[in-house]
């Protein structure tokens, strides 16, 4: 066989497959737009809050760091009264600068430089963030999306909710690096995650074909998709995220499929446990 045979064979593919590829230009952009807008709003809100806090004068060290700190978005919890003790989780990039591969993700696209959100320096983090999680989302459209993780009211680390209109379905989060914050610049510690820890938080946001519920470390994912579509979701999404057959059961029931997986929630304790292996 040679490439010409393959090109000819492509001419015989079914009409529905060709038709499926006829997405009008710009439609993808429209789908992503609400998310982009939500991210902009979140960052703007964070920046405004930081400016506000800076004006209140929280100490000379903080003021001195303010201009640089605005580049590292902080996500406050919903209850300002708890903000002193809550974790502020920072962004988040896709791969460590200079890295080209992450175990298990060798074939994934490597983001360009502009995709990075610079990780805050130790000085910027001092006294502000307790933990920084560098992660990426695996979602239904893109292989990766920069993500902010915040601690929710139950102490779980969850992606920032980007609004009800969001069409993305988040399949999981790959945690690549964890930084532990401290009171001083010197005490900020980089916690290496051996081999690129892969853990999953599966969350569905406003997508009608998907529904997912998590409770007590067990998540149930309902996918309103034909059975034949489940294969790629399993191989391309679930398996790379560390889900495996020991951990998940898949049931098909007519048009609705259920993937039921058990995995640890990303909790503060879990992140803390990662530091045990830190050099």
């Amino acid at each position: 066989m040679d490439p010409a045979d393959l090109i000819k064979a492509m001419g015989e593919i079914d009409d529905d497959l060709i038709e499926g590829s006829e997405r009008p230009r710009g439609r993808a952009l429209l789908r992503i737009l609400p998310i982009a807008a939500a991210f902009v709003l979140v960052f703007a809100a964070a920046a405004a809050l930081m400016l506000f806090l800076g004006k209140k004068g929280e100490g000379p060290e903080h003021s001195a760091n303010a201009p640089e700190a605005t580049e590292a978005a902080e996500i406050p919890t919903s209850d300002p009264a708890q903000s002193d003790t809550d974790l502020y989780l920072n962004v988040v990039s896709t791969l460590p600068p200079g890295a080209t591969e992450v175990p298990g993700w060798e074939n994934e696209p490597v983001p360009s430089e502009k995709d990075y959100v610079r990780l805050a320096s130790a000085r910027e983090l001092a006294g502000k963030a307790d933990i920084i999680v560098r992660a990426r989302i695996v979602d239904s459209i893109c292989a990766y999306v920069p993500v902010d993780l915040v601690k929710d009211a139950k102490g779980r680390f969850m992606p920032v909710k980007t609004g009800e209109s969001t069409l993305h379905t988040i399949y999981g989060i790959q945690v690549l690096e964890v930084y532990k914050g401290g009171e001083t610049a010197e005490s900020v510690k980089r916690v290496m995650v051996p081999g690129g820890i892969v853990e999953g938080v599966v969350q569905s946001i406003g997508y009608p074909d998907y529904a997912q519920y998590c409770r007590g470390g067990e998540c149930v994912l309902f996918l309103n998709l034909p059975e034949e579509s489940q294969g790629w979701i399993w191989s391309d999404m679930a398996v790379p995220m560390g889900f495996n057959e020991d951990r998940c059961d898949i049931e098909y029931d007519g048009g609705v499929s259920v993937i039921k997986c058990r995995f640890p929630e990303i909790t503060f304790d879990w992140l803390e446990s990662l530091s045990e292996g830190a050099v």
């Binding site: 064979a9 593919i13 497959l17 590829s21 997405r23 294969g231």
Partner: peptide, 27 residues
């Protein structure tokens, strides 16, 4: 046989990957 196999293969792909491949190799 090849055409049939290519068809079957395309159906195993994630939608985005399938569409990218069709745009590239068909169109």
């Amino acid at each position: 046989e090849l055409a049939s196999a290519v068809n079957a293969f395309l159906r195993t792909l994630p939608e985005l990957d399938r569409n990218l491949f069709i745009r590239r190799c068909f169109f």
